[in-house]
Amino acid sequence: MKVDKTFAASVALHVLVIGWGLVSFSSKAFVSMPEDSLPVEIISADQLAKVTAGMKSGKKEVKTPLVEKVAEAKPIDDTVGKITEKAPVVTDTTPPPPPPTPVEKPVEKKPDPPKPVAESKPKEEPKPIEKKPDPPKVDPIAEALKKEEPKKPPPKPQAQAAATPPPTPPKPKPERTFDQSKIAALLDKRDPSRNAATGDTLNSNAALGLSKGKAADNSATWGAMFKSQVERCWKKPYGGIEAQMTEAIFSVKLKQDGSLETTPASISNPSTPYFRVYQESALRAIIECQPYKLPAAYFDEWKFFEPVFTERRS
């Protein structure tokens, strides 16, 4: 039987290339590489549709998914201006702040924050300070005080700045008295000035949704979830130099509720005392951390799997 040498070389080369490809591409296929479970999710249009499809546990009366509602939420305007708003500091030595204009007036006036430069000058004088930052909104504390010593509401701040004489030395204030009935006045009654813009309220009221609704709420992989949970329980022994090559593999069977169905069986066989201790510490962690919270949609995958506890850094 005669074979051309080039043909033989070609066969050998093919075998080599294909064999190499088989070994190097296939061996890693089923190892779930460690990945961190982060709360950031990138959602495709398809996934979004699934998430908003609804849940079987939803309330019946909510007929449709609420996502459209969120879309037309009231705009959040002027967050900055509202947050910096601050009640004037009331002390015994400062004269009582000028009571704000009545409640009805101010609402329309809010938007314009006063120019900072002009007002910053007269800072030493207590009076202007109160005028400036006072957006016409009701200041509850001031209001409470106003009731105690009634004063006529001052005219518009700008005008008064010019008109008022320089402040006289503060006249002694009446003794502070504690009035239980006024506690309510001290509460901050302002509207909350921040709203969540997006995201977490997306599906907070689960609707019954459509018949296809079936999505899991978290698209992080279950492997990373298991890893982060079991690592919290794992107190691994300190092994020094010889610890670098240890690896303990278990086969774990989980029930639907995330608890262990059987005691995990170790697949690897400990060869040194340190390896045995390492394996026991891992087993302890698996047992202690149950039940695991894993996405039910992937139950078929995580009902039977093999966690690998290792010191080998890949």
Partner: peptide, 17 residues
């Protein structure tokens, strides 16, 4: 090459305390 491809899914755990 093929044999290793049919195992159970493996999850690597590296960060204990």
């Amino acid at each position: 090459g093929a044999r290793t491809a049919f195992g159970q899914a493996r999850v690597q755990i590296t960060e204990g305390n």
